[in-house]
Amino acid sequence: MIKVGITGGIGSGKSVVAQLLSIYGIPVYIADIESKLLTDTSPVIRKELITLLGPEAYIPCGLNRTFLASCIFNNTKLLQKVNAIIHPVVSEHYLMWTKKQSSLITAIESAILFESGFEALVDIRLMVYAPKEIRIQRAMQRENTSQKEIIQRIENQMDDEIKKERSDYVIYNDMQSPLIPQIENFLDMLYSKFV
């Protein structure tokens, strides 16, 4: 089985590419959704976050996201400790998920593929790239938030040029290059090289 890691910055269109791959029959693990579920349900994560942050870390329905956000805001050391608790559990969950798939190719979509260490779990790193101006407009429309807030979030993510260098394949989602032919070329390359 070939494992593909899909990444890209906010507003790049990585979720669109993930949806298109799933239409082509590629099962896709959405790391953001799964990690939110796991932080609510995993006894391992719950125990370690309560040890780190105190009992306020959880409310009856799951993780107290407002409290967590206030703790890690502008505290990179604490954020790293939180990630060191969550990411290994997500990694293990993803690997168990792949074992249940019968497809020749599977994928994981993660905005933090490189930062989380998920890149070590995949065979091919696929980046979805879009110019910064387009990313800002898309994110502002989708999240109904200010340009300043989106720019701040972009600046807190790994630089796109670094992601590009560390990726094996790049799909351009720049409003000029059609996505379908690029995805078909990517899949052709995978099937010819690896399958």
Rank of each mutant, 00 (worst) to 15 (best):
M1E: 11
K3E: 02
V4H: 00
G5F: 08
I10H: 01
G11W: 04
G11Q: 04
S12N: 08
K14N: 12
S15V: 06
V16K: 06
V16E: 14
V17S: 01
Q19T: 08
L21F: 08
S22Q: 15
I23K: 15
P27M: 06
Y29D: 13
A31G: 05
D32L: 12
D32Q: 11
I33S: 11
E34P: 00
S35C: 13
L38D: 12
T41P: 04
S42I: 11
V44D: 12
I45F: 05
R46Y: 04
K47Q: 15
I50D: 08
G54C: 10
P55K: 14
I59V: 15
G62W: 04
G62V: 05
L63V: 07
L63H: 04
N64Q: 07
R65G: 06
T66H: 04
F67T: 02
A69Q: 09
A69C: 02
I72F: 11
N74H: 14
N74A: 10
N75T: 06
K77M: 04
K81P: 05
V82Y: 05
I85M: 07
I85W: 06
S91A: 14
K99V: 00
L104R: 14
I105S: 05
I105M: 11
E109R: 01
S110K: 02
A111E: 09
A111P: 11
A111C: 12
I112K: 09
L113N: 09
E115N: 10
S116H: 08
S116G: 12
S116D: 12
G117V: 06
F118W: 12
L121I: 13
L121C: 13
I124Q: 02
L126M: 04
L126F: 03
M127P: 01
A130G: 01
A130K: 00
I134M: 07
I134D: 02
I136R: 04
I136L: 11
Q137H: 08
A139K: 03
M140T: 06
M140C: 15
Q141W: 00
E143C: 05
N144G: 15
T145S: 12
S146V: 08
S146E: 14
Q147Y: 05
K148Q: 15
R153S: 07
D159P: 00
D160Y: 00
K163Q: 10
K163E: 09
K163A: 10
K164Y: 14
S167I: 09
D168Q: 04
D168L: 03
Y172W: 14
D174A: 06
M175W: 00
Q176G: 02
S177L: 07
L179F: 08
P181Q: 09
E184Q: 15
F186P: 13
D188G: 10
M189F: 13
L190Y: 02
K193N: 14
